[in-house]
């Protein structure tokens, strides 16, 4: 890849400049008769040094629920929500995509449910599934399912009819047509929905954790707890960790995608 070195250099430079100016700007005392006033108040946006200290502290065993456990809880729920959502969405998309009658029957229900803001479901899901892991997974699932469903549905419908015909002429049964033509063809569409799916799974889980309280655990809980104690540094720790989780998961999906879609010309260079 070209520019690799210079791109990395600029990326790091931006990060350093950003952190340094953050640290510096939040350290400037305002010229005022009232003591303790800042030009840019670290009370609201905290400071890198403070965040780093809280980060280390939250990782330690001096807290009841440390950052490691919370991260694990969030990641675990996200992955479960993602896996369950992708697999059910994929199967439903395939079935309805290849069956016009079923697709017509279910269309209004799917559209109606999908246009419901999922956050509005949180209290109901909590009522049914309580405050734990399951509620978070269910919430992530309600979002991921539809993203994957719509993509797979579209993919299953737009399978090239001539590919199906050639398979039949080569002697394929209905099942074999499904396995060797429709599924691989639809998978390309499904994959396009995986990166947004993991992000939305994370959103679902964090929203679930906002309400879930300590028993649900997770980084969403850390954010809400920090709001209660007006602790911007802890909030920043949670946000940065969430950002890291997001990046790692997106990279993981990219890896799988590159491997499975290596037949496509646009993936070949990176494979």
């Amino acid at each position: 890849m070209r520019y690799r070195g210079s791109v990395l250099f600029w990326q790091l430079l931006i990060l350093v400049v950003l952190l340094a100016s953050w640290e510096w700007l939040t350290g400037i005392k305002a010229i005022s008769r009232t003591p303790g006033l800042y030009w840019i108040d670290p009370f609201f946006i905290s400071r890198p040094s403070l965040i780093a200290r809280r980060f280390v502290y939250l990782l330690s065993d001096r807290v009841r629920l440390n950052l490691w456990q919370m991260t694990l809880s969030t990641v675990q729920s996200t992955l479960w929500g993602f896996v369950v959502g992708v697999s059910t969405g994929f199967v439903a998309g395939l079935v309805l995509g290849r069956n016009d009658r079923l697709a017509r029957i279910f269309a209004p229900y799917i559209v109606a449910f999908n246009s419901l803001p999922r956050i509005a479901l949180v209290p109901l899901i909590t009522m049914i599934f309580g405050f734990g892991l399951v509620a978070k997974i269910v919430l992530a699932w309600t979002i991921v399912f539809f993203i994957v469903f719509f993509n797979t549905f579209q993919g299953a419908r737009s399978v090239d009819a001539d590919l199906i015909h050639s398979a039949r002429f080569l002697g394929a049964s209905e099942r074999q047509v499904m396995r060797t033509v429709i599924i691989p063809s639809a998978l390309a569409w499904t994959f396009a929905s995986l990166t947004p799916s993991i992000s939305f799974a994370l959103i679902g889980v964090v929203v679930g954790e906002f309400l879930g309280g300590e028993s649900g655990g997770g980084l969403g809980y850390l954010i809400i707890q920090s709001l209660g104690t007006l602790n911007a540094a802890d909030m920043m720790v949670a946000l940065l960790t969430l950002g890291l989780i997001g990046i790692v998961m997106a990279l993981g999906i990219k890896q799988v995608e590159t491997r499975l879609l290596r037949w496509r010309p646009e993936y070949r260079k990176s494979a």
Partner: peptide, 26 residues
């Protein structure tokens, strides 16, 4: 009966070998 289409109907997600193997696999 075998059928060869005008349009490209080689399965893009299968290598040459696995495309040729399709009929045998079926």
């Amino acid at each position: 009966v075998g059928y060869v289409f005008q349009k490209d109907t080689v399965f893009p997600w299968r290598s040459v070998r696995r495309n040729i193997a399709l009929g045998l696999e079926y």
